[in-house]
């Protein structure tokens, strides 16, 4: 963040959000290659599959670093808000994820407990928690 100290909060946020969006897009594309490449592009070639996974992990690491920079660029209330939203998301995902897995293991649900369901649950929990916190802190209120 030291390189960004001459920037205003808005400039910093804009730059960090753009960087995060860019790395998230790259990560999604690399994940698509890992998921669909073996069947649609390189017909099960193991070396190419391994390379795709390594690239996916490397791009994922860059996305995590971009997210860290983004969080560090926020002001203290925004950081607190994000921390609370992430804490609730982590806790809810752990509890619901394990319960969901148990339901599958006990054959109490008619379908397989897929990891993608958990990712969707995480996204929705994080989204609604952030929305709730914004409302609680009056972030949507008009300025004076």
């Amino acid at each position: 963040m030291s390189k960004q100290t001459h920037l205003t909060l808005n400039q910093r946020n804009k730059m960090n959000t753009a960087s995060l969006a860019k790395w998230t897009l790259f990560w999604m594309l690399s994940l698509a290659f890992v998921s669909f490449g073996p069947n649609l592009l390189w017909e099960g070639n193991i070396i190419l599959s391994v390379i795709a996974v390594v690239i996916n992990l490397a791009v994922g690491l860059m996305m995590i670093l971009a997210n860290k920079r983004h969080l560090q660029g926020l002001d203290e209330m925004q950081q607190r808000l994000q921390l609370n939203a992430m804490a609730i998301t982590l806790g809810a995902t752990l509890i619901v994820g394990l319960a969901y897995s148990s339901l599958d293991n006990s054959a109490l649900i008619p379908f397989t407990a897929d990891i993608s369901h958990l990712v969707i649950f995480m996204g929705l929990t994080y989204f609604f928690t952030t929305l709730f916190m914004h409302k609680q802190l009056g972030c949507g209120e008009e300025g004076e």
């Binding site: 002001d75 209330m77 925004q78 802190l137 009056g138 972030c139 209120e141 300025g143």
Partner: peptide, 8 residues
């Protein structure tokens, strides 16, 4: 800081 932070 953000305007929202001042408001809060």
């Amino acid at each position: 800081v953000s305007r929202q932070t001042i408001n809060a």
